[in-house]
Design a binder for these strands. Sequence first.
RNA 1: GCCGACGUAGCUCAAUCGGCAGAGCAACCGCCUUGUAAGUGGUAGGUUACGGGUUCGAUUCCCGUCGUCGGCUCCA
Length: 615
Amino acid sequence: MKALAPEWARAFFTKEVSSMAESEKERYEDSDLYRIRHSAAHVMAQAVLEKFPQGKYTIGPPIEEGFYYDFELPRALTPEDLEAIEKRMRAILKEKHRFVKQVISADDARHIFKDQPYKLELIDGLAAGGFDEYGNPLDEKPEISIYTHGDFVDLCRGPHVENTAQINPEAVKLMNVAGAYWRGDEHKQMLQRIYGTAWKTPAELEDYLWRLEEAKRRDHRRLGRELDLFSVSEDVGPGLILWHPKGGMVRKIVEDFCRAEHEKGGYEFVYSPHIGKANLWEISGHLGWYKENMYAPIEIEGQQYFLKPMNCPFHIEIYKSHIRSYRDLPMRFAEWGTVYRFERSGVLHGLLRVRGFTQDDAHLFCRPDQMAEEIDRVLQFSLNLLRAFGFKDFQAYLSTRNAEKFAGSAELWEAPTEALRQALIRAEVPYQIDEGEATFYGPKIDIKMRDALGREWQLTTIQFDFNLPERFDLTYIGEDGQPHRPYMIHRALLGSMERFMGVLIEHYAGAFPVWLAPVQAVLIPIADRHLEYIREVAAKLKAAGLRVEIDERSERMNAKIRDAQNQKIPYMLVVGDQEVSQGQVALRLRSGENPGALSVEAFLDKARQDIQQAV
RNA sequence: GCCGACGUAGCUCAAUCGGCAGAGCAACCGCCUUGUAAGUGGUAGGUUACGGGUUCGAUUCCCGUCGUCGGCUCCA
């Protein structure tokens, strides 16, 4: 779970967050829960090492909704082991051990942890002053401290509870075991990570477990099947999505809406093929730095072609098809471009991480003097789009220049980076600065959204590119009659249609607002004799642009209502003798509300209003 | 890719110690003509993911492949 990684948790709670964030909120690191979880992690390590005295322990931080601890153990842990460890933890907690902190010298620490290679590595890092316990660089040299409770000692900066009795043994639960590389480096030792959760009271634990169950119910993979939105076929291949008619309808509505917005926003639409010659990717540099993510070449008449992992080279070729004047700029080429990227099998995840996806991609070419406004505009545009789909909580990230790996010169990076920052401030979105996290070719803004389980997924990305204009030798003729290098910005706002749909499905838990619902209304006859009237009504509603189905099955009305509810159809229109005689429909909403009979016109008015207000 | 778990009907899940593979829902065919979350009877549905091994006999034990799930790493 990426969102629960310590790097993330630390970054989120400690790094710079704009003044728009609620600064009043207690920092997680200062909270009781943080201490409880941190201490529970120590107790867990104690229980694990009792069971495996030859085991090595590494780090065990609190995370967003619990804690984990990584171990190197002689064998793989089983579910039974977890139960035993959990049981032992409860016993230890009841023994009321005090947590005692001692600040010690590096040499003393090395002595205490002489049989613990991972701890020794951490101590070296701390002593050198270069890195903290997670391997992140530090500004100043930290003190080295240990925490002892009972006969267990751990290298740790705290904080902890005073006493294990402050942790309710019934509010602690071990969740699962997972593999994790030492310091997150796949070239290093694979460790066993035990995830646990801890709360103040058993009721809070229950609540958390209930929330997890709820999250599973809104998992887009489950809803995708239940609502018949999409599937993945083993025969087609993993990470390749098949959109069913209902999912296809939602996607079409999303795309149509976005296309219309793009048109209003000054974009021009272009189309480009799925493959391009090796030479194109040589020029773009993808074969140099992106090859691991590209599929093997296709040979055509002795030439190698590659399936596109990105659309940019094609858009650049369109730019280059003419000599461009400063008067032509800015140019904004948009394309719903389908790209294919090789993703390692273990990382695929429903719609959120796939191998083939369609980006709402565009490339902006502009003069330096237009740059700030273009950035402002595109960020604003992106936020408006996301808001239109009901998203309100964004987490924005500004990635700045990596000191070691960057295209162009440091000076070149300054203005765009500042323009990105200013745009974020003007847009009044909370953002965090990821210092040195930019790709080599330019600074960027990413906007991420959370899925039902709290994992963050990047949707919007707005990336400056100092690299491709050089590599393709892009120019425009300036007022001075001389060629100049344009600025280039890559941007995908919804990101990819697949990922966006995944997040969208979970956001609404499958109950799409009326304007997005694949089926907006289902007509339910009480008896077959009402069908003729129902067909007339259906025709009227369809003529008015509504997406309507008739449930003609030989089932009772109750069963049809139940099925419509489960399909999360916004309107159920029940028709019996009364409605036929009155020229009405009886409206039931998926909320369970029952507004009752109304005329077809009155219903249409309501539907139009709901669509307008995006409910 | 790596660590671990898992893979039985379209879906959710059973199957004792290795002994003829089963249920509910869905589907299909009837009956019922229904008033706000499951009316009722029947039929069909399987080389237990795939391939190999052990065994008189494998859904069950072993090996491999593929896939899924939870993490790690990476990203739209």
